[in-house]
Amino acid sequence: MRWLQFFRKVNSMDALAARAFMDGLDGAEYNLVDVRQPGEYQKGHLPGAMLIPMGDLEERHADLDPTLPTFIY
């Protein structure tokens, strides 16, 4: 078990600030990841978000560019 990950600081941003941040960037300049389940994604998701359910992140994180800011919801 990687205990360290439970104590690592993850930044948080409210939706308004996140939207303003993304509005100022080209879509290629950030990752936007929907970590919910496919059924929730289907009902409504942020345009352009990549669906990677939380349980698949370990396997699929290579689909994302780690050098870019990564927004998760």
């Binding site: 993850v10 930044n11 939706a15 996140a18 994302l64 870019l68 800011p69 990564t70 998760i72």
Partner: peptide, 8 residues
């Protein structure tokens, strides 16, 4: 990943 931001 250098900057991970949780959308509150």
């Amino acid at each position: 990943f250098q900057k991970v931001i949780n959308m509150a």
